[in-house]
Design a protein around this nucleic acid. Structure first.
Lengths: 138, 138
DNA sequence: ATAATTGCAAATGCTTTGCTTGTGA
DNA sequence: TCACAAGCAAAGCATTTGCAATTAT
């Protein structure tokens, strides 16, 4: 099945009750290209069902996040952005000109972070790494 | 002279006009322990001059930031936090239990970030690295 | 003198919430 | 059936702004 069933499937797994609204939000969230904010999500959703309130989108997105189904990011700028929870951890590079978000992983950096935290007497629980860059034209 | 003259001095350097309010904000900002948010700053300031409006604190903090005199951080949580602009770059480790903020530098990580960006076809312009951890009790 | 700054209150923009009505299991 | 969800509008919060009065140079 396509990705658009993933979120729905995970809701069932997690015992999250499904409604028409939630199904649609899950579908749009699955199909959408890149880390949308709630406004963008709501706009897209409205194309299919214009009666869904933005409050419902806020509530659902929070619900999905708390269930570990999607992930929330607060990049620079004001609004939170969401993505389907990845099975593999990754960080983000944000194109400062276009806003495009590129995912990457780097194991060396991960290890160094843990090491740094430990050296300071801390157990690393979480981290946030964002790179901001501009495209090199060749 | 104590640190509390640094911000004032840098204002003169940068041609930022000084007022009683700005002087006081600069002084408190210099003396305060750790990355305060605007509310904390205003509270502290009010102990000396209770007539200073929080709008002025907001305006001044933004002014100082734009002049490169202080730095703004948006850690997790909602409010922005500020620190005197450091001459040497550093990142932050946030104690998830106490909110304490510890500064650190790691050159290896810095280099790897640059490398990652370049590999993706980007020139690294800026980054954000925050570690969240809990104290290891020994 | 006069352009910039302040205080105040009102306005913003994103997000949350109270309440009543609707609905999934 | 009935606890939970949706819609709407109002409330919350951090932050910004318009405007009249005040101040720095």
């Amino acid at each position: 099945m396509g990705e658009n069933f993933d979120i729905e499937a995970r809701c069932k797994q997690k015992g999250v009750r499904l409604t028409d609204q939630r199904r649609l939000i899950a579908k749009v969230m699955s199909e959408i290209k890149n880390h949308p904010d709630v406004g963008e999500l709501h706009k897209k959703i409205s194309e299919t069902d214009s009666k869904i309130s933005i409050a419902t989108v806020y509530r659902t997105v929070k619900l999905f996040e708390e269930a570990g189904i999607i992930a929330k990011h607060d990049f620079r700028g004001n609004k939170s952005r969401y993505e389907q929870a990845p099975d593999t951890h990754h960080d983000h590079l944000i194109d400062v000109n276009t806003g495009k978000i590129i995912e990457f992983t780097n194991n060396e950096i991960e290890k160094l972070q843990k090491k740094v935290a430990e050296k300071l007497g801390y157990k690393l629980i979480d981290h946030r790494l964002e790179l901001y860059g501009s495209k090199i034209k060749k």
